[in-house]
């Protein structure tokens, strides 16, 4: 077989510059979209629709049902962390993701369009207390 000859095989400086710029974009977007801090609440959404908010400090089992009432997955809140223990999706990536507990962290299950997201600690987002 006669394959075409590959001429350009080494990384040149122009390309290196593009890599550096991409890294910069990553860095800036990391600062812009970063969310941190210990979470207190967890938010569960299916296809962007909020189906519930749960307190991370209360150990509980949260079944996630779709709008027809079919069980999609089961998540468990324990010791201030949430994890998915079972899911009907084919890849089971959501189970592999393990426990999350920090604000901004998410467990995403693409087949079920489920997003489990830790939202900021309540005390942190409160601007004032009415006595």
């Amino acid at each position: 077989m006669n394959f075409p000859k590959i001429t350009n095989i080494r990384v040149n400086k122009k390309e290196l510059l593009i890599v550096v710029i991409l890294t910069m974009i990553a860095l800036i977007s990391f600062f812009l979209f970063r969310i941190s801090g210990q979470g207190a609440m967890v938010e569960i959404k299916i296809a962007q629709k909020l189906i519930g908010t749960y307190d991370l400090s209360i150990d509980q089992e949260v079944p996630i049902l779709d709008d027809k009432g079919n069980l999609l997955m089961i998540s468990v809140i324990k010791d201030g962390m949430i994890k998915v223990v079972s899911s009907n999706c084919p890849d089971k990536i959501c189970i592999d993701e393990g426990s999350i507990n920090l604000a901004g962290q998410t467990i995403v299950c693409l087949p079920n369009k489920v997003v489990i997201k830790i939202i900021g600690n309540n005390d942190e987002t409160i601007d004032g207390v009415l006595q």
């Binding site: 987002t125 409160i126 601007d127 004032g128 207390v129 009415l130 006595q131």
Partner: peptide
Amino acid sequence: YTIAVQDPHNI
């Protein structure tokens, strides 16, 4: 702004 309304029983 998020304002917490205190519980009269337990501040």
